[in-house]
């Protein structure tokens, strides 16, 4: 199992930057670009609807509604999956400020923390365990794109860096 642990995706923990600051980008694992997904969808939708339209011309129009329903269903599935393809969290420590940028579907929100008073807490256990970035009166869930174990590592690593 040791070998397995070493296989953690490096880029998720690529703390970048020099000196006391760092920048960390946490992304969902998405193996196809939104454009690629559109191509994949367009190709299959065109073939399916084209075939159905050809049969409709020959008099067998009942293929068309089924093809339509199916293409819509596939579109919804791809949209649900693709809407969050570009989601990310960027955690930056620079100029004495801790900035967390959360991108979710098409909104980007920025949160600012005082690094001196912020710490990372672990909430819950096992499956469904979350980590929260907390400072007095505020709390923000981070590391949502990571596996539990990676979240724990991230919590430890962030706390260590914040304390420095």
């Amino acid at each position: 199992m040791k070998g397995w642990i070493q296989e953690l995706p490096r880029q998720e923990f690529a703390f970048q930057g020099r000196g006391p600051g760092f920048s960390l980008l946490l992304k969902r694992n998405c193996s196809i670009s939104p454009a690629g997904l559109m191509w994949a969808y367009g190709a299959i939708a065109a073939v399916t609807l084209g075939v159905a339209a050809a049969f409709a011309v020959l008099g067998a129009w009942m293929v068309l509604p089924f093809a339509g329903i199916e293409v819509v269903a596939l579109g919804i599935a791809f949209a649900m999956n693709g809407r969050h393809a570009a989601d990310y969290e960027r955690i930056q420590l620079a100029g004495g400020r801790l900035l967390v940028e959360v991108c979710e579907s098409d909104s980007v929100r920025r949160h600012e923390f005082n690094p001196a008073r912020a710490s990372v807490m672990v909430a819950g256990a096992g499956h469904g365990m979350r980590i929260m970035l907390e400072s007095p009166g505020r709390s923000l869930e981070i590391g949502r794109h990571l596996h539990e174990r990676a979240r724990l590592e991230l919590a430890g690593e962030l706390n260590r860096r914040l304390r420095n």
Partner: peptide
């Protein structure tokens, strides 16, 4: 999976037309 997506509506249409020919007076 691509083949299935492209061909399944055709089967669904075929059997539905069989059904309407049987019961709803269509003549596909």
């Amino acid at each position: 999976a691509y083949l299935l997506i492209a061909s399944m509506p055709v089967l669904a249409g075929a059997v539905t037309m069989t059904l309407t020919d049987r019961h709803f007076g269509t003549s596909f």
